[in-house]
Amino acid sequence: MEMKIDKSNWKTVKLIDVFTKKEENDKENARNRFDRFLKVSHMDAESLHIKRWSSQENGEELNPYFYKIFRKGQILFPTRNPHLRRTALASFDGITGEKTLTLEPKEEHLVPEYIPFLFHSESFYVHTTGAIIGSTNPHCRWRDVANYEFLLPPKDQQAKLAELLWAMDDVIEMENKVLEKLKKDDLAYLKHYFYDDKTSERIKLKHIVSIKKGRKPPVLLEEGEGLPYCTAKYLRTGEIDSIVPKGAWDKSIKIDETDILVLWDGSNAGEMLFGKNGFLASTMCRLNIKQDDFLKEFVFQFLRFKTNDIKRATVGSAIPHVDPGMIENIEIPKLSVKNQKAIIDMFNSIKNNISLIETKISSSKALQKSLINQVF
């Protein structure tokens, strides 16, 4: 999105010219004055919105370094790890950590609704990440942030641009709400079919599946002729790290898009994935369906519901791995093939809608970022 913006009457200012750094610290009594406190982890990358926080009323412990008070309408900029792009617009009063800047716009220069988007512009992050000091605890200083220069339009133009920027932001937030609803529906249906159903006959998984562990081929290439070595990374992202050459195929386990796979070893042991065309990695297992009256995708959806239970039951302290007995003794509902197909179709519909809305969000964010970078 390219807009023709006349910047001839815009003036160069430093951030310190239009913002005041507020230092409202109360080491002794802040925890008694405010319930909600905000960690950097509560802030989403490249989003001005605060959607979660911690609460003392809920029994969450307040870090002793959390005594800085922030006020609604202030910009919260964490100086540690600025490359994470977590800057938020405070929507309530609360407490945050001492290393988060609390910045208040000077309204004689600024339209308050306009300026928050500055903090998610590419030029601002290039400036702040370029000013990082410290290797163990990388951070930038207020004086470096304060010296950031940018072009500031007259207030009437700020108001018009603010209206456009927030309209785009509203679209993204509406799309995010749709996505959140779809994901909640997905979880609700998993629970409905695989937990709430107390009437269906159930059968242990060991009677309908067999488990085949992957193995590392004798030869792996970084590039060349062959098929992908299907690691968890490749299955999630499509990024190929290794190729299995044709000469090693007879010593490898071939898989395709219809195979149900379980990440067997490592920190994410128990994660369920569908396969891709290639060869099974040594950290993965393939589940083969032994009974024709159970559909692969139905078994996959059931195991997706059981993933957290499987992960909690992993064994081994150094390298966690899935307990095969745990999987084999899970009881799956025994439904007709017709009912299994109906459930599969419903979950596929939700998945397709999630994919569609995620694409829309990605497109909307790219459009918003393009405009922000043109303005600031």
Rank of each mutant, 00 (worst) to 15 (best):
residue 195 Y to I: 14
residue 27 K to Y: 12
residue 162 A to V: 05
residue 312 R to A: 05
residue 48 L to T: 06
residue 95 I to Q: 01
residue 156 D to S: 05
residue 215 R to Y: 08
residue 182 L to E: 07
residue 165 L to G: 13
residue 294 F to S: 00
residue 345 D to I: 00
residue 66 F to V: 07
residue 329 N to P: 04
residue 323 D to I: 10
residue 342 A to T: 11
residue 13 V to K: 03
residue 180 E to S: 12
residue 108 E to P: 05
residue 73 G to W: 00
residue 217 P to I: 01
residue 29 N to G: 08
residue 200 S to A: 07
residue 67 Y to F: 13
residue 51 K to G: 15
residue 123 S to W: 12
residue 201 E to W: 09
residue 22 K to I: 12
residue 286 R to E: 04
residue 48 L to K: 01
residue 188 A to D: 04
residue 143 R to S: 11
residue 371 L to W: 04
residue 149 E to W: 11
residue 199 T to F: 06
residue 247 G to N: 15
residue 186 D to S: 14
residue 105 P to G: 00
residue 177 K to E: 09
residue 137 N to Y: 13
residue 304 R to Y: 04
residue 311 K to W: 05
residue 222 E to H: 09
residue 256 D to I: 07
residue 256 D to P: 13
residue 153 P to E: 03
residue 124 F to G: 00
residue 263 L to H: 02
residue 37 F to E: 00
residue 6 D to H: 03
residue 315 V to Q: 08
residue 42 H to W: 10
residue 8 S to D: 13
residue 304 R to S: 05
residue 339 N to Q: 12
residue 367 L to G: 14
residue 319 I to C: 06
residue 56 Q to C: 12
residue 237 T to W: 08
residue 363 S to H: 07
residue 161 L to P: 01
residue 329 N to A: 10
residue 322 V to F: 11
residue 305 F to W: 00
residue 225 E to K: 14
residue 65 Y to K: 10
residue 101 L to H: 02
residue 268 N to M: 08
residue 52 R to D: 12
residue 365 K to T: 09
residue 331 E to C: 09
residue 1 M to I: 11
residue 240 I to F: 09
residue 328 E to V: 09
residue 163 E to K: 10
residue 208 I to D: 02
residue 346 M to F: 06
residue 203 I to M: 11
residue 185 D to I: 03
residue 69 I to K: 02
residue 360 K to H: 15
residue 294 F to K: 00
residue 170 D to Y: 11
residue 333 P to H: 01
residue 236 R to H: 13
residue 60 E to V: 10
residue 135 S to I: 10
residue 282 S to Y: 09
residue 4 K to N: 15
residue 155 K to L: 09
residue 28 E to T: 04
